[in-house]
Design a protein around this nucleic acid. Structure first.
Length: 292
DNA sequence: GGTAGACCTGGACGC
DNA sequence: GCGTCCAGGTCTACC
């Protein structure tokens, strides 16, 4: 079935889809027209694949399954969140236009960051990005999804991302060996159990009134979430006060601002501090010079 | 508050 | 084929 959504004026579907590496991780994929494809499990337990295509000024959503009205409402809510349709970037764009290294992202209507439907899923994905190579992150995510996600009825070889309940049931050694997640396995197990038991409500953080610092502290109570992961998750929550400093950040900032000299995480943070509450976005969408 | 070492996986490299 | 080294963030213990 098909329905439509109306995006804000300054919106580009390809810009969101390609905003970062999530699109390469299962069950995300990019459609040939640079739209979004994703396999989701709704609250009713229904598993479906949906595609979002930009058609003129609207977004067309195609679903592999027929949806009841509450299911369509739920799916619309998820897509609105995933594509960050409600965020207003007017203030940031006004600042970014005067910075040659950000002017291009304004032209491309970039700034929105692709999200998973749930924060639980984004935390798990982020845990899988830490202390490993991107290739291995993709493998771990693929294994996790295909082993513990619910299958798509019309293409049972494809799966939705596993729910907290699914992952809470998997014992840690199985997760460790099956998905070759190493020491990350107990982090994912503990997170899944905390969410399933109700001890940790991640979804409430999406609309939290906490300050960014308080939100950061809350995220860092999750085992395996340190400074980089918390900053990354804050970006996904629409808070851009922190720059996620990883090895790539150290490299590009060194190349761009320090003539290739080795830099510390503190120097990376100082480089973008002038962007205030937008510093994470300025870093993320900076038009980095090619390495010499 | 800062630092060192351990945690894992898998690819590159030398023998 | 085997052993060693390395990259990638976070945690814990220690100072």
């Amino acid at each position: 079935m098909t329905f439509t959504l109306t995006p804000p004026a300054s919106f580009s579907l390809p810009a969101v889809v390609r905003s970062h590496g999530w699109i390469q991780m299962s069950p995300f994929s990019e459609t040939p027209d640079h739209g979004l494809s994703y396999i989701i499990r709704l609250n009713t337990g229904k598993v479906l694949r949906f595609e979002v295509h930009a058609i003129g000024d609207t977004l067309r959503v195609d679903s592999t399954e027929l949806l009841l009205e509450p299911e369509q409402t739920e799916l619309s809510r998820h897509i609105t969140w995933m594509l960050d349709l409600e965020q207003d970037f007017t203030e940031f764009y006004a600042l970014a236009r005067d910075e040659p290294k950000l002017a291009r992202m304004v032209e491309r209507k970039a700034g929105r960051v692709l999200r998973s439907p749930t924060l639980f899923e984004d935390v798990v994905r982020t845990l899988l990005t830490t202390n490993t190579l991107w290739k291995h992150t993709l493998r771990m995510c693929r294994e996790l999804t295909s082993r513990y996600g619910d299958p798509l009825p019309c293409e049972p070889e494809l799966y939705a991302f596993p729910t907290p309940e699914n992952l809470a049931r998997v014992d840690e050694p199985t997760l460790r060996e099956g998905c070759r997640m190493g020491y990350r396995a107990p982090y994912v197990t503990e997170l899944s159990q905390r969410v399933t038991s109700g001890e940790l409500d991640l979804e409430i953080l999406k609309t939290s009134q906490l300050t960014t610092l308080e939100l950061r502290n809350e995220l860092m109570t999750i085992k395996g979430v340190g400074g980089y992961a918390a900053a990354n998750l804050l970006m996904l929550l629409g808070r851009y006060d922190y720059v996620p400093v990883d090895s790539w950040a150290l490299k590009v900032v060194s190349n761009e601002f320090f003539n290739g000299e080795k830099v510390t995480p503190k120097q990376v943070l100082e480089t973008f501090v002038r962007w205030g509450k937008w510093q994470g976005l300025a870093y993320w969408f900076w038009d980095w010079s090619p390495e010499l």
